[in-house]
């Protein structure tokens, strides 16, 4: 099970300001809090900074690593920015966020995954567009996973992201993802499955309820990694509770430590 802390992203106002002011203390603080709250990986995304993305990525990676010794999830569509971030990541095995079945992206990102022996988040989409059904996603998965493995990425380093569509605009969107997870687990049991938890609730009120319910449902179906806000206590509470209830927390030790850490 893996939690990627999502907070260091320049599309968030406070991070954008911290980057503009080169406020390293703020970045270090957010990184530290996320690790303390249970994040195993720290996502770093500065995609909103049009012209200086690679440079800012470098600064963020260095700054985060002054505070925590956690491995990083380098999050960018730009191969150059990914390269910069990966080259500076010092702790553990980094994650690339993301590769996909889109030809251009696949060809640009794959060499980086091999060069840095990184884990990869692989989006279940190709040049055919956004997937709608479980079948659409599995068509991509059945090509993408063998391609990555043949190229030298170990099966266990692949994190498939089924891509979450809001249930408010497509009422079968949640169930299609749950079905996708079950099929991936059946066909590629060693591959991991990851997603972000905010898309699903777009356009509906009480978004947190939907996000939380979706985490529990996807985890029950076999998802084993999440990109989320680890400072969200309720979400983290459900995370530990679900792990324990699904028999994935030996002697409920993680649940108990979370309790003792104040959750």
């Amino acid at each position: 099970m893996l939690i990627v802390g999502e907070l260091i992203n320049t599309s968030r106002k406070s991070i954008r300001e911290a980057v503009e002011n080169r406020d390293a203390a703020y970045i270090r603080d957010i990184a530290g809090k996320q690790v303390q709250a249970g994040a195993g990986y720290i996502d770093v995304n500065c995609g909103t900074l049009l012209d200086s993305e690679a440079e800012v990525m470098g600064w963020l990676v260095e700054t985060v690593q002054e505070a925590v010794q956690a491995p990083l999830c380098i999050d960018s569509p730009d191969p150059k920015t990914l390269d910069t971030g990966l080259s500076l990541a010092r702790f553990g095995q980094p994650v690339i966020n993301s590769i996909s079945g889109e030809k251009e992206r696949y060809e640009a990102v794959l060499p980086l995954a091999l060069k840095y022996k990184a884990k990869v988040i692989a989006l279940c989409m190709d040049d055919g567009g956004m997937p709608v059904t479980a079948g659409d996603r599995m068509r991509v998965v059945r090509k993408l996973v063998p391609d990555l493995v043949c190229a030298g990425v170990p099966m266990g380093d692949i994190y498939l992201d089924p891509l979450i569509i809001p249930v408010g605009t497509s009422d079968q969107a949640g169930s299609e993802v749950l079905e996708t997870i079950r099929r991936i687990k059946a066909e590629f049991p060693e591959v991991h499955i990851i997603c972000g938890l905010s898309n699903v609730s777009y356009g509906l009120p009480n978004r947190k309820l939907l996000n939380q319910a979706f985490m529990i449902q996807t985890m029950t179906a076999g998802m084993d990694a999440y990109i989320l806000d680890p400072l969200d206590h309720t979400m983290m509470g459900f995370y530990y509770a679900s792990q324990a209830l699904l028999g994935k927390d030996e002697f409920c030790m993680n649940y108990l430590s979370a309790y003792r850490n104040g959750l």
């Binding site: 995304n45 995609g47 909103t48 960018s76 569509p77």
Partner: peptide, 10 residues
């Protein structure tokens, strides 16, 4: 809808 495609707006 993506931070990564915002440059395309510019």
């Amino acid at each position: 809808l993506l931070t990564t495609t915002m440059p395309a707006m510019k």
